[in-house]
Design a protein around this nucleic acid. Structure first.
Length: 332
DNA sequence: GTTCTGCGTTGTATCCTTAT
DNA sequence: ATAAGGATACAACGCAGAAC
């Protein structure tokens, strides 16, 4: 990849959340961790392959955690201190179950770039669990492919929030991939891709709120907020985002609020209604609107249609033009 | 690529019936 | 009387397709 890597760290910084990607080459990597030498490097060696092995073509080796750099195209953004602390605790209690995945760092010989397992690396560094982790080294993956590898691993473990996904997609787009290609590979409709891209249009103040409640602000919410930000400005957007999160409102509420703020005159009084379900259909009434979907047997069809048409005489209004008024048989 | 609309599914509140 | 379970209605959600 010859293109300069995208600089997206501005989208991703927060006091409460550890940024995943920002530096490449890592001038601020902490020095070697002073560790009790009596502690085994990997406490549960029976759960992992031994160091320096080749397992079905896989290159497994132990790697010093301070030699592992973040992936500039990291598929995940949101790492809270709690997540890292919990992972450190898991590693202490259970050891390392699965190897992390890395590629050789193309710009720093002897160093590696993480594909999958960055939480474990951070847990080891910050909470001094292990000096080294068992790693599978992928020499055949490009930076972009390694990021997709991590993305797929995280998706499999349901570890992504929508903000993670959106920021990953933005990085890939900045690195030259098209939105359509990403949507295809991530199995997203172009509608959803459009919603995910809304995160990138939000101002930092709103992203700060989202990072504090990553599960609360999905792509649909991001899209609504981006629309509000575009039309009504930052103050209204921040205020609404805060209210949405602090009052734990529903997605529908947020959509309605945005709609009301953008079209203050378009508010409609909510009308009461009813729904009756039958074995062969459903009848709904909402205010002045009636909806009927029903299956009628062949022998009853004519009588039903006649009765319904007589009923329609009460309320149905003829179309405005003579052309429209031509008799048409509309399927019921 | 963006936005709107509608559909199918899921979750939840409420009411009713039954068992204890 | 009341707790438990079932049925029903409706809100909420996620998403795709169509229109722009």
């Amino acid at each position: 990849m010859s293109k300069p890597l995208p600089k997206l760290s501005g989208l991703i910084k927060s006091g409460a959340v550890v940024p995943a990607t920002p530096m490449y080459g890592l001038p601020d990597i902490p020095g070697p961790v002073a560790r009790d030498e009596t502690t085994p490097l990997i406490e549960t060696q029976d759960k992992v392959a031994p160091p320096e092995t080749s397992n079905g073509g896989r290159k497994l080796t132990t790697v010093n955690v301070n030699l592992i750099d973040p992936n500039p195209l990291a598929p995940r953004e949101v790492y809270t201190p709690e997540m890292i602390r919990d992972r450190a605790e898991d590693l202490r209690v259970q050891g390392q179950h699965d190897p992390i995945h890395v590629i050789p760092n193309p710009s720093a010989a002897g160093r590696f770039i993480i594909c999958d397992g960055w939480t474990r690396v951070q847990a080891c560094r910050e909470h001094k669990v292990f000096d080294t982790l068992l790693a599978e080294i992928h020499t055949d993956l490009s930076m972009q492919e390694s990021a997709w590898f991590g993305y797929e691993q995280n998706e499999g473990r349901s570890q992504h929030c929508d903000l993670d996904r959106a920021m990953f997609y933005e990085k890939l787009i900045a690195a030259g991939e098209t939105a359509a290609e990403i949507a295809r590979r991530a199995k997203l409709s172009k509608t959803m891709m459009s919603f995910y891209r809304a995160y990138g249009k939000l101002p930092e103040d709103v992203l700060e709120i989202i990072r504090l409640h990553p599960g609360k602000f999905g792509a649909t919410e991001a899209y609504q907020l981006a629309k509000l930000y575009d039309k009504a400005g930052i103050r209204k957007t921040v205020s609404l985002a805060n209210k949405y999160a602090s009052e734990d409102q529903t997605q529908r509420w947020l959509t309605n609020q945005v709609q009301a703020l953008l079209n203050p005159n378009a508010q409609k009084a909510k009308t009461a209604g009813k729904t009756i379900r039958y074995a062969n259909g459903v009848y709904k009434q909402r205010g002045d609107s009636f909806e009927l979907v029903i299956t009628v047997s062949a022998e009853q069809r004519e009588a039903f249609a006649q009765g319904l048409e007589e009923l329609l005489e009460i309320a149905a209004i003829a179309p405005a033009t003579a052309e429209d008024a031509d008799e048409k048989h509309v399927e019921l």
